[in-house]
């Protein structure tokens, strides 16, 4: 027999669990950020995380950006050619790349690469007592492990997105000029005429938010993992899944904030 109250109870439990998890993540993030305001600051850990975030993510972000820019040019050409609006393509490419695709695709790629690596590293440190060991060696693990990574995420992902924006536009430019037969200087002129500073700033603000979310999810799930190799594995999965969903959710919220009237 199925008691309808069971279903209600399950929804209630689920909601409570979600609220509790959100609270825990928020507290964790706030604690991590507050450590940035109080010395010492572990510059070496910050630089290591920055290099991991940005430099080693460059190839995958660059490739993703070039191909997305190229695909948008192609797709919008098939859509628009019927109405004779080819000139709009330059604008569509640059606006979709700078406002939307650059930050989101770079964010998702970095979540898969760096978020996973962070969760695995901190998770392994947790289950092998290395995080506890830090505490016995006059080092606050939140300050040493988490704070530098959060800051690195906020700084590195916008840098990556600048590169992604340029390469995305370049991808669209290549297809438009080499394949669709557009005039190169005309294409570039339309590109820069349409793009505004506000678009760039909004895109970079999204990128910084995504970088923070990626680092937060990687650190939170790694830091709180338990139960040996399996626990580290599921922490890694959770970090990537949670970061990806949050990126898409925040993308909507921020788009609403920046662009909707």
């Amino acid at each position: 027999m199925i008691d309808p109250l069971d279903a209600v109870a399950a929804v209630g439990r689920g909601t409570l669990g979600a609220v509790r998890a959100t609270g825990a993540v928020a507290l964790f993030g706030a604690a991590g950020l507050s450590h940035l305001l109080r010395p010492p600051f572990y510059g070496r850990m910050f630089l290591l995380a920055l290099v991991e975030f940005s430099y080693f993510s460059l190839p995958v972000v660059a490739l993703t950006a070039v191909f997305s820019g190229a695909v948008i040019a192609l797709q919008s050409f098939t859509g628009f050619s019927r109405f004779g609006a080819e000139s709009a393509i330059a604008g569509i490419v640059v606006l979709s790349v700078v406002r939307e695709l650059g930050p989101v695709l770079a964010g998702l790629m970095v979540a898969g690469r760096v978020g996973a690596a962070m969760a695995a590293e901190l998770g392994t440190m947790r289950v092998t007592d290395q995080i506890d060991a830090l505490g016995t060696l006059s080092t606050n693990p939140m300050k040493y492990l988490v704070a530098p990574r959060l800051l690195a995420g906020v700084i590195a992902v916008p840098l990556l997105v600048v590169v992604a924006d340029i390469l995305g536009v370049a991808g669209g430019f290549l297809v438009s000029t080499a394949k669709l037969g557009f005039n190169p200087s005309g294409y570039l002129t339309s590109t820069f005429n349409i793009l505004t500073t506000a678009d760039v700033v909004a895109g970079l603000a999204q990128a910084a938010t995504f970088g923070f979310l990626i680092a937060l999810m990687g650190c939170y799930h790694g830091y709180n993992s338990k139960g040996g190799a399996q626990g580290v594995g599921s922490a890694t999965t959770s970090a990537v899944v949670a970061a990806s969903i949050l990126i898409l959710a925040f993308d909507y919220v921020l788009t609403e904030l920046f662009f909707a009237r």
Partner: peptide
Amino acid sequence: EQVNARIGMLFQAGALFDS
């Protein structure tokens, strides 16, 4: 933290920082 700074601990599995 000041009290803890005067405690040293040898962990069961070593817990050496592998990085």
